[in-house]
Each structure stands twice: as C-alpha cells, then as structure tokens.
C-alpha cells in the first residue's frame, strides 16, 4: 500500500451529511467497471445529469475543486455498505485524505487499508476548514502532515489532529498488513492449538 506522510494539495468541501458508500460508487459500476476506472464513476448520481453530462452544480465539478486531493465532508461520511470500491473510487478520483466530523466505521477502516488518511475533527473545525477551502478555491496549498499531525490552511492556520497510533504507523510505513500479521504465525498456531481443546465445537464441523 502507498505511504502517506505529507500532502500539499487543493481541498474540496462536500458538506452533505450521511454520504453513503452506495452513492460514492453504485453496485452497477462496481460490478461492471475495472478498478482503474472507478474514479470516473464516483458520486455518479450527483456528478452527472440524466443525459450523462456533468452536473455543473455538483460541488466537486466546480472549477477550482476538480483536482482536489483533500475532501472535506459532512457528518458520517462513507456510511452504509462495506464496499471497499468506494475507497477505490475516491482514490481513483484523486483523493488521498478526507476530513469529516465522523466516518462510517467500515469505510474509515477501508481507507487505512488503501493508504488514504481519514481525519475526524470536531464539527466546528470541519466547518471552518470547509469555509477556508471554499475561499481558497483552486489554491493548492492545504497541507496535511501525518508526521506532525498538523493541517495547515492556505492562510497559515494550523489545526492539530489525532489518529489511532496503529493506523498512523501503518499509513506512514505503507506496510502490507497481511505480511506483518503472518509474522505472528506461531502465535496464531498456538492459539488454535489451545482453542481446539477448549472449544472443540468450533473446528472441523461437518454435517453428520
């Protein structure tokens, strides 16, 4: 997975509440499109009009925000389905970092697994950042620094953020989690050996 250390880019506000992963990527698109093309279909119900043309009023279609890599979002962003393609679609659209008052739990987890940084901040902080992003349309100088846990706005305001230490380490190192866990192979084997005796009904079940 790609490392996340520091990012300097445009931030785009999408301050709708409870944006679900179905609207981020529809079931039709996630089933029919290759991973590399999912970005084009992100937010399709909002991004495109019925005739297939771009909807000029959709927040992320506006000039100045089209190349954003930081998404500033409303409460409970990424709620709903566990579909990891929602993260792939956002990533395909160019986003590397999301800032919101809160995220769907599975979505936030999926972000970390794919090298995307999801930052939770108090709602008033997020609103301030959304306002700053709106004012700074096209300005590419929002900085997210995961080494210092600081967001810097184009005006130079600094906002500290917190993230779970394990997630932070994983993002900074860009580690392959499966490879890391397999280093605990002996502990897993020992657990199962003990557990087979303690809870034999869990293992080797078949129908008589």
């Amino acid at each position: 997975m790609e490392k996340f250390t520091q990012l300097t880019a445009t931030a785009a506000p999408l301050m709708r509440q409870n944006v679900d992963t179905d609207v981020i990527i529809s079931i039709d698109n996630l089933m029919s499109q290759p991973r590399a093309k999912l970005g084009y279909f992100a937010f399709a119900p909002w991004r495109f009009l019925a005739d297939g043309e771009e909807n000029p009023e959709f927040e992320l279609n506006r000039p100045g925000f089209r190349d954003a890599q930081i998404l500033i979002a409303g409460r409970n962003f990424g709620c709903g389905s566990s579909r990891e393609m929602a993260v792939w679609a956002l990533s395909g659209m160019g986003f590397r970092c999301m800032i919101a008052p809160g995220f769907g739990d599975i979505f936030a987890n999926n972000c970390t697994k794919n090298g995307l940084l999801a930052i939770s901040l108090p709602e008033n902080r997020v609103n301030d950042l959304a306002h700053a992003a709106e004012q700074a349309a096209g300005d590419t100088s929002f900085t997210i620094d995961l080494e210092t846990n600081i967001i810097t706005s184009p005006k130079g305001d600094t906002i500290p953020f917190e993230i779970a230490a394990g997630d932070r380490d994983a993002l900074l190192a860009g580690l392959d989690e499966i490879g890391k866990t397999l280093q605990h192979g002996n502990a897993i084997a020992a657990f199962q050996a003990r557990d087979r005796l303690a809870r034999p009904w869990i293992y080797g079940v078949t129908v008589a």
Partner: peptide, 21 residues
Amino acid sequence: AWGIGSSEVAHVLATQTLVQT
C-alpha cells in the same frame, strides 16, 4: 460479528485473524 472490506477479507483468509481496536 461485524462487516469488513475486501482487503480485510483477504487478511482473514490468509491469517484467520484481524487487527482490531
């Protein structure tokens, strides 16, 4: 019981564990 993304499904397949908080 809880839902996971496909990267974590692969993790469970390969290790029978999950890294969890």
